[in-house]
Design a binder for these strands. Sequence first.
DNA 1: TTAGGGTTAG
Length: 621
Amino acid sequence: MALLQPTSAISNLNHNSHALRRRLDSIASMSELRQYHSQVVRLGLGGNNDAAGRLLKFLALHPSGDLPYALRLLRLLPDPDPFLFNTLLRARALPPSAAASLLSRMLSLSLLPNRFTFPPLLPSASPSPSSSLPFALQLHSLLLKLGFFSDPFSQNSLLCFYLSCALPDVARRVFATAPRRDVVTWTTMISGLSRSGLVDEAREMFDVMPERNSVSWNAMIAGYVQVGRFADAFELFDRMRREGLRLDKFAAASMLAACTGLGALDQGRWIHENITRNGIELDSKLATTVIDMYCKCGCVEKAYEVFEGLEKRGISSWNCMIGGFAVHGRGEDAIELFKQMEREGATPDGITLLNVLSACAHSGLVSEGRYYFNYMIQASNIEPKMEHYGCMVDLLGRAGLLEDAKKVIDEMPMSPDAGVLGALLGACRIHGDVEMGERIGRTVIELDSKNSGRYVLLANLYAKAGRWEDVAEVRRLMNDRRVRKEAGRSVIEMNGEVNEFICGGMSHPQAREIYETVDEMLNRIRLAGYVPDTEGVLHDIGEQEKENPLYYHSEKLAIAFGLLHTKSSETIRITKNLRVCRDCHEASKLISRVFDREIIVRDRNRFHHFKDGKCSCRDYW
DNA sequence: TTAGGGTTAG
């Protein structure tokens, strides 16, 4: 065909080649691409690298491109150049093995990688260090051999690669011997070290780096946030602002995550206001972070307001909002939102369904939960994963349907992990099935032997049955394995400051006043019928002695602090790291009535809204 | 062409 092209058409093309290039660069859909591709072939340019490169850019890099098409196109080219390979290597969807074979095809055609080859190639070698490391080492030596070590992009990518495979030692050596280090080199180290958990080392580098930009600041702030060092994140954020850097969307996202972690509503609100005031675009990611902050700081209503105001809702925004309703025990709202999502044509994913199931579990909606689980298996393309089974076990187990929960486990296509079995163990504890609980519990502490919560659950089960010798044995096991029980901590924000309490702790400057308030608080609720619930206490000691630690649980200290420092109309908001114990739950209900206060507690799993002597979880948690 | 942000059961 190409041979039969009339010469006039060819010269016409040469004349118009600039226009053709422009058109090829503005392809917006696959149908357009097909049109242009056939036009290119008809014009006899099927083997032209310049035209092919433009087609490949769309096929490999555009979200609605077609990677297999791109790979076929490349194979058909008689004389490809490195640019074409580099373009394909940039494709996000390219599997690592395909990247490796592209490189070897390149080399077999005697095409040398250039400085644009390594940056996209290196990350494709990273996800599984054990299998791809030899390949990575080959890449590294090739990079050196070809002299790209002094190319900043190649060098920084190499550094990033080693850090992302959690090989900080190698990264440090590359860094130390680097011929030149720019702000990206330093920032890559900071971000990578943080991701490996080496935040303090990252901070040392941050403090000595010669030049910082907003990315560097945020990499360090995000590093603190990732490991839960929220106070350090706040400190650095303040310094950043003092040094005159403005809040951008990345810093906003990191700081919102810090607020979410702490349950610091006031600070979170402040960031949200600044996003609006500074005209920072509320894209789908940032919107989700804002919604999550409001949900996890106890303001579902505000979260929903933000959610409703979004022009475009990404899947994460839907998921986040459904999950928000779930943890607040608003199961019906979560289900309603899920239905709305389907009506609006958004496609749910595994997390959506997980959140819906979780909503059913938190609200005790057993038949709805069963319905959505079946729906998932039969009507959606989403395959239930471990976590979905865990959620179902939790839902059924909590409702006392222990045999049904067990059946779900028996019929799972994979073997249950500690999380799934742990859900059943929890249910056994609630419903006092010592026999099943013991069997499951023993397995769980072997599967998840470092998690103190598992031991505590098993010990609680024994304690409930009065089997004190077994309680002691579990404690011995914990000692032998050096597993420490996590200390309960409660946090309450006051005037932008975060106050943290631990059980029986005296380190707060107002400790005396707080303890006096606790005593007064307890005296008043005693008159309203408060009887300490010692079930959660693990010692086999007299009832009288058992009560003491309960009185000064971190949560009660935080509530007392809240009563001391807020007006009578204000809601007291508390965030804690463990689950609310039975005794604190009862006490909080009574306090909400006797002191006429709304108290919102976020525990490890969900929210409790205490009001007028009742809790939003309807004692179902 | 390299470095920074999102949802996930118990």
